[in-house]
Design a protein around this nucleic acid. Structure first.
Ligand code: MN
Ligand code: MN
Ligand code: MN
Ligand code: MN
Lengths: 151, 151
DNA sequence: ACCACATTAAAGCCAAGGCTATATTCTGTC
DNA sequence: GACAGAATATAGCCTTGGCTTTAATGTGGT
């Protein structure tokens, strides 16, 4: 009986398994920009009653043409509507995505803060993390926060 | 004395503040691919003694030419070296990045599992989340895990 | 030693998401 | 009502990171 590895190297996951993990992360990244836009547009609409491209650009830290190009993608994908020189509005499915995005955003921020991350760091880390939190993880986060609140 | 808002809308962050948050997330995303590559290359080197482009491609779930193009970027940025038809190796700074990436990856997975996320979900969510966890948050995660272990 | 097959390299295509520069259209003020 | 300045639209450029197709190179098995 031979002992194959004295130093127990943690074995790598199988190539297909690992490929699937990376693939999911790439997929999540592909919708991240859409989520940020619709979430921001929903916020602007609810606070200011309108979402103008220039405000969207300013808050995203991006040039106006870049914002406009992305807004066109939102329109193409049925998430937003806009007539020339009017503001941007969300379709039904745009609103639905915005609501999911905002809910996730809040839970992620709350979790980070609950773990002792200072507020501004929690906000900026959450801006990237949120897009990679699956429904399963999201529910786990919420469960943890609940259990912690009523303690 | 007028009450301006009966329904207390949570105010939006200032445009520059919000822009800074989004900017950080974009910056993190820009290095995410590099981190995944060097982490994977380091793993292949330590387990198989070599990191061949085709294995890298397979594990990332990407075509060989795509992997080769990214490896060229690693070389350009001083993270890896490779001669034609030899495998890929990491420079000092490549190894440094790989070690940081792996440490963060492990902590994120452990945190997710500690919160009740099932292992495979933890792994695939972590693959995206890891790139957006700041040093401050990482330390908070580690602290939480430690406090929880010795309970 | 040869040859088939695997691997690698090279070339060229595409979409996304950044940018600048310029043209057009609105709009608030006088 | 005119007009200056703000906002918007349009055009064109760049890099990244995907892809396929084709060519070149290594390599293991007989
Ligand atoms: Mn975000
Ligand atoms: Mn968000
Ligand atoms: Mn990753
Ligand atoms: Mn990783």
């Amino acid at each position: 009986m031979t002992i194959s590895k004295l130093q127990v190297e943690p074995a790598l996951p199988s190539p297909p398994t690992q490929a699937q993990r990376f693939g999911k992360a790439r997929e999540a990244q592909a919708v991240a920009l859409l989520e940020d836009y619709v979430e921001l547009i929903a916020d602007l609409l609810s606070v200011h009653g309108e979402a103008r491209p220039i405000d969207i650009a300013r808050r995203l830290g991006v040039s106006h043409p870049t914002a406009v190009k992305s807004i066109n993608r939102l329109k193409r994908e049925g998430l937003a509507t806009a007539q020339p020189y009017r503001g941007v509005f969300l379709t039904e499915s745009g609103h639905a995505m915005a609501n999911r995005a905002r809910a996730r955003h809040r839970v992620v921020v709350q979790l980070l803060e609950a773990l002792g991350v200072p507020p501004e760091t929690a906000e900026s880390d959450a801006e990237g993390i949120e897009h990679h939190v699956s429904d399963i993880s999201l529910r786990a986060f919420a469960r943890f926060l609940r259990s912690r609140d009523l303690r």
